[in-house]
Amino acid sequence: MSDSRVSLRNVNYYNGQTGDHLGGVRQNGSITNANFFHMLMDILLVVDGIITISNRETGEQMPLNTNCLAEGDYNIFPSSGEIRSSEERYVRRVYSRRGRSRRDSYFRNAVRARDQRCVISGTVSPEADFDEWDGFEAAHVFPMERESLWWECGFDRFITRPGRHAMNSVQNGLLLEAGIHQRFDNFTVSVNPDDGYKITDFRGNLFHVDGRVLEFVCRNPANIDRVADGLLRWHFRQAVLANMRGAGEPIFEHDYPPGTDMMGEIMEGPFAAEQMELELFSRLRTVPSESEDSVY
């Protein structure tokens, strides 16, 4: 449901000219005043000039510093003209399933070999030396089910490692614990490469990762296989849009045990046709030929 992103919010922001509610966020401690300002200016709002942010209760103007954003309600005022929410496109995605092709196994193995741990929580697999990875999953930063958008936007430009299957490049991947993978895929956990690779949990900080820094092993600039900053930047923008704009975007159900009426549940939920299309693509990708797998 769309309100699943709203229920835990402890910060809300309003149009100071009209009083209209524009959105909000869950502050777990990692969001600074400066972070909040830049999220509003660079992603969430369309405004002439710059904005000022003031506490709705006290009227005190927020300083643009690295202090922790205080919980509460804020009015946003433009320096001139009007203010409105951005209409930037949000790209819905589903929790990615284990792939069926040999290409997917190459991706998984390359991500494991580079990262050796969950790069968001820092948890190291105690059985990695025995090639046992229970509880760890190779996650795509940009979702495979959105392939047409990948090519439409030219995101292959972020992949500097040569190969034919750019979306399945290790540079589009991170090794994550399974629960964190789910949250990464629904954009409730994300990484800002423009803020020292700081991790933000936009919900309840269940895995205690809010404020951590992405592990160096996956972003080492000396490694040609490092995760692409451009893709992390795209993911973070999507997370801000999903969690902070208006009432937030829906979080799709991902757990369909045997016997569940999956189609029925999807059709009763939000954006049913889109979710069904994404689920089918995620689950039913075809197996490529041997020749397709020969170059990666």
Rank of each mutant, 00 (worst) to 15 (best):
R93T: 14
R26L: 02
A70W: 03
R56F: 03
I83G: 00
G59A: 13
M41L: 11
G19W: 14
Y14Q: 00
D48C: 04
E60Q: 14
I53N: 10
V11I: 14
V91F: 12
S79N: 13
G49C: 10
R97K: 15
G81F: 01
L8R: 09
Q27T: 09
I76T: 08
V25H: 05
V25Q: 07
E88P: 00
H38M: 03
F37R: 13
V91Q: 07
I83R: 04
I43Q: 10
M39S: 07
L40M: 13
R98Y: 03
Y95R: 15
R100A: 14
I76W: 09
S86V: 00
G81E: 12
I83Q: 03
S96I: 00
I76F: 04
D42L: 01
V47P: 01
S30T: 09
Q61D: 10
G16E: 00
V11P: 02
M41I: 05
Y95Q: 14
R26D: 06
E60I: 13
F77H: 11
I53R: 11
T18F: 09
S79Y: 07
S80K: 12
F77G: 03
E87Y: 02
D20N: 13
Q61A: 12
R100Q: 14
N65L: 10
Y14L: 00
R84I: 01
A70G: 06
Y13D: 00
S54W: 10
M41F: 11
G23P: 01
G29I: 03
M39L: 06
T52W: 04
S85G: 07
Y14W: 05
L64Y: 13
L22V: 07
T32C: 05
N75R: 08
L69I: 02
S85P: 00
V91C: 05
L45Y: 01
Q17A: 08
M39Y: 14
S80F: 06
S79H: 13
G59W: 15
D20S: 10
V91S: 04
S101D: 15
R97C: 09
S101C: 11
D48G: 04
N15R: 02
D20F: 07
E57F: 05
N10I: 00
L22T: 12
N75D: 04
T18S: 14
V46T: 11
G81Q: 09
S85D: 03
G23Q: 03
N67R: 08
G19V: 06
E60F: 09
L45D: 01
D42V: 00
I83E: 01
S96Q: 15
E57K: 06
G16C: 01
M39A: 07
H38K: 15
N12M: 06
F36S: 06
S86H: 02
F36K: 08
E60R: 12
N33R: 12
N35A: 07
N55Y: 07
R56N: 05
N67T: 06
N65F: 02
R97H: 14
L22H: 07
E88N: 06
A34C: 10
L8V: 04
A34N: 15
G29A: 05
R26Y: 05
N12I: 01
V11L: 08
S79A: 10
